[in-house]
């Protein structure tokens, strides 16, 4: 694989992580843990994989990304800004009155947001609808979804998993951010969603398991997910919550709390 491409994406992911830390620090609230854990995945999508055009955000043939775990909004905003949907300076308005950068993504407020999310468990259903429309319209766009591993405790996810398989939505690819933590603690302890591979396989999906922080593995898994064998695709990404900031990594308390100014500084040094 192209070493330069991978190095560039790794650098971009680092920049996005810096945005995330700064934005949440400035906002004084937000969800750094799960934004940082999915940063490499979303970077690979927005800066290599997806056919999108920030100049024509509503282009009907575009690929779509649905951030089902809507609390990772800072990650989506950072990617959109870096991709040119809006100026990066606007990232500092996150969660402030009047800003299009709502605490959870709102498609009516910000170009590039494909679906309003935040109430967990709903994104895959919407993605399925987009994928069905693509098939009806004979358009070959692909729909990507980011699900959280705590989020899949929601029953609607499994309704949608069943439907994607039933309607042969091979134009859907889900990334499951398997960071193993949710607000109340270890996902396995709160309400175990395991075994993940077996569950998704039995629901009729193509399943891959990768290191969710390894860009090369992410890109390779994406390539494999275009097999078009009539099955939807899920890439279970083994990740670390808070990845990239030493004091946040694997710490459940960083699910939903903002870093203080000195912590922002420390994090930015680590992400330099």
């Amino acid at each position: 694989m192209d070493r330069e491409l991978i190095a560039n994406l790794e650098e971009k992911a680092k920049k996005i992580r810096r945005h995330i830390v700064r934005m949440i620090g400035e906002a004084g609230s937000g969800h750094p843990g799960g934004s940082l854990s999915s940063a490499d995945i979303v970077t690979a999508l927005y800066f290599n994989e997806m056919r999108i055009d920030p100049q024509f955000p509503q282009w009907p043939g575009r690929d779509r990304f649905v951030l089902s775990k809507g609390h990772a909004a800072p990650l989506l905003y950072a990617a959109l800004a870096e991709r040119g949907y809006f100026p990066a300076d606007d990232l500092m308005t996150l969660r402030k009155m009047g800003s299009p950068l709502q605490g959870h993504p709102a498609m009516q407020k910000l170009q590039g947001v494909e679906m309003s999310t935040g109430s967990l468990g709903q994104g895959l259903s919407a993605a399925n609808g987009m994928a069905l429309a693509g098939k009806l319209n004979n358009m070959d766009y692909h729909v990507y979804v980011l699900l959280g591993d705590g989020e899949i405790q929601e029953g609607q996810v499994w309704e949608a998993a069943m439907a994607a398989s039933h309607y042969k939505l091979d134009n859907v690819t889900v990334f499951l951010d398997h960071n193993k933590l949710q607000i109340d603690g270890f996902t396995r302890k709160v309400m175990s969603p395991e075994p993940l591979e077996e569950k998704w396989t039995s629901f009729g999906w193509n399943v891959q398991v990768i290191d969710g922080h390894n860009i090369e593995q992410i890109l390779r898994a994406l390539k494999q997910s275009y097999a078009g064998n009539g099955k939807p695709n899920i890439i279970i990404a083994e990740t670390v919550k808070g990845k990239g900031v030493s004091f946040m990594e694997g710490e459940v308390d960083w699910h939903g709390s903002a870093p203080k100014p000195d912590q922002v500084e420390k994090a930015l040094q680590e992400l330099a």
Binding site: E114, S125, N128, Q156, E159, A163
Partner: peptide
């Protein structure tokens, strides 16, 4: 026509996605 089975929550979400894609 899409019969979504006895799964109303997913039906509403799927309808939302169809609408977001112009249906």
């Amino acid at each position: 026509f899409f019969d979504m089975g006895i799964a109303e929550q997913n039906m509403m979400g799927t309808a939302a996605g169809l609408a977001a894609a112009g249906k």
